[in-house]
Nucleic acid binder design. Structure first.
Length: 285
DNA sequence: GTCCAGGAAAAAC
DNA sequence: GTTTTTCATGGA
C-alpha cells in the first residue's frame, strides 16, 4: 500500500542530509526508512513525485503534516533578493529542504545529544537508545522486507517513561559520553506527564518565552534550545547559531544576518545556509 | 598523537 | 558580567 503525491519544494536527500533529523535510514533501493513517533514508513522520490509506503488514512492523519505540506516554501524562496548572492545560491542548492514536524521529545533528545558532537555519532547514539529502550514498531509485510534489507530501525524512539529505569551507565554505553547526565536529568523532568505539561505550556508562549523555558532545562543552552524550538516545536523564526552558521556569519554577514527582513521564517533561511555550508565542508562520508 | 564535531556547565577572570 | 576551561568519544 502506498501514497503518491507531488511537491516541487521537497527533496528527500536534501532533508536527510540537512541535519534536522537523525532518524532517516537510506535504503539500498534509493529511498529512506523513516521512523517518527509510533509510525514508520519508507519514502521514495522520482523528480517531484514522492511515494510513501503507507495507507491514505495514515498519510492524511500523520505524514502529510510530518512533511509540512501545507506550508508555502516557494513563497519563502521568492522572498530572497537576488542581491544576496550567497543566500540565493544556498537556497538554490537546498530548495528541497522543508522543516519537518517531528515529535518534540525525539527532537529534544536528539539535539541534547548533538552538542559538541558529529552527525554520524549522534545518529548512532540515538539508534542505540531505540534498540535498547524503544518498542518495536508494527510493520506491514512489504515495508518489513525493505527495512530489514537496509538495516533500518525497527524500534520507535523510547518515551520518557520507557527511559525512566535507565541508568547513567546505560546512557554512557549508548555512546552519549558526558551528555549522559543531561539525558538522565531530562528524563527525570519529563516523565509522568512532565513532557505533556511542558508542551502545553510552551504552546501558549511567544518564541522568546519558549526559548527561555527550554534554557531552564539542564544541558540545554542557546543553540540547542533554538534547534528544539525550530525542529521540534515548528517555530520557524528561530535561528540556531552553530559552528557552521557562525562561520557563515563571520564570512558573509559580518554585520549579522538580516533577521528582520525574513521575519517569520528565519529558520528556513538558516537551513539553507547550514546545508550549503555543510556540503562545502571537507568532512564527507 | 592531535584535532574536531550542529555546545553547555562550571570555573576563573 | 564576560571569558576560559572542562567535559567523553570516535573518526580523520
Amino acid at each position: 500500500m502506498s501514497v503518491v503525491f507531488s511537491c516541487p519544494q521537497l527533496d528527500l536527500r536534501q532533508i536527510a542530509d540537512s541535519g534536522q533529523c537523525f532518524c532517516w535510514r537510506p535504503l539500498p533501493s534509493g529511498g529512506y526508512a523513516i521512523a517518527s513517533g509510533r509510525f514508520f514508513t519508507c519514502a521514495f522520490q522520482n523528480e517531484d513525485r514522492i511515494s510513501l509506503s503507507c495507507g491514505p488514512e495514515e498519510f492524511d492523519s500523520y505524514w502529510s503534516r510530518y512533511f509540512d505540506l501545507e506550508t508555502d516554501y516557494a513563497g519563502m524562496l521568492g522572498h530572497i533578493p537576488s542581491s544576496d548572492k550567497y543566500l540565493s545560491l544556498a537556497a538554490q542548492t537546498g530548495k528541497g529542504i522543508r522543516i519537518l514536524r517531528q515529535e518534540p521529545w525525539e527532537v529534544m533528545v536528539s539535539f541534547l545529544v548533538s552538542q559538541n558532537n558529529n552527525i554520524p555519532r549522534i545518529t548512532k547514539s540515538l539508534e542505540n537508545l531505540r534498540l535498547r529502550f524503544g518498542s518495536p514498531v508494527a510493520l506491514s509485510g512489504d515495508i518489513g522486507e525493505a527495512v530489514s534489507a537496509g538495516h533500518g530501525s525497527l524500534y520507535a524512539f523510547p518515551s520518557p517513561e520507557q527511559l525512566r529505569e535507565a541508568t547513567l551507565e546505560d546512557f554512557t554505553a549508548a555512546g552519549l559520553g558526558y551528555r549522559a547526565k543531561y539525558l538522565l536529568r531530562l528524563v527525570k523532568d519529563m516523565k509522568d506527564g512532565g513532557l505533556q505539561s511542558f508542551l502545553e505550556k510552551a504552546e501558549k508562549l511567544e518564541d522568546h518565552q519558549v526559548r527561555r523555558l527550554l534554557l531552564e532545562l539542564y544541558g540545554i543552552g542557546p543553540k540547542v534550545a533554538d534547534c528544539i524550538a525550530l525542529f521540534g516545536l515548528h517555530r520557524l523564526n528561530m535561528f540556531p547559531v552553530d559552528t557552521h552558521i557562525s562561520a557563515v556569519l563571520s564570512e558573509v554577514y559580518p554585520q549579522g544576518f538580516p533577521r528582520e527582513f525574513y521575519h517569520g521564517f528565519c529558520g528556513v533561511m538558516q537551513q539553507y545556509l547550514f546545508y550549503y555550508h555543510l556540503k562545502k565542508s571537507p568532512r564527507k562520508k
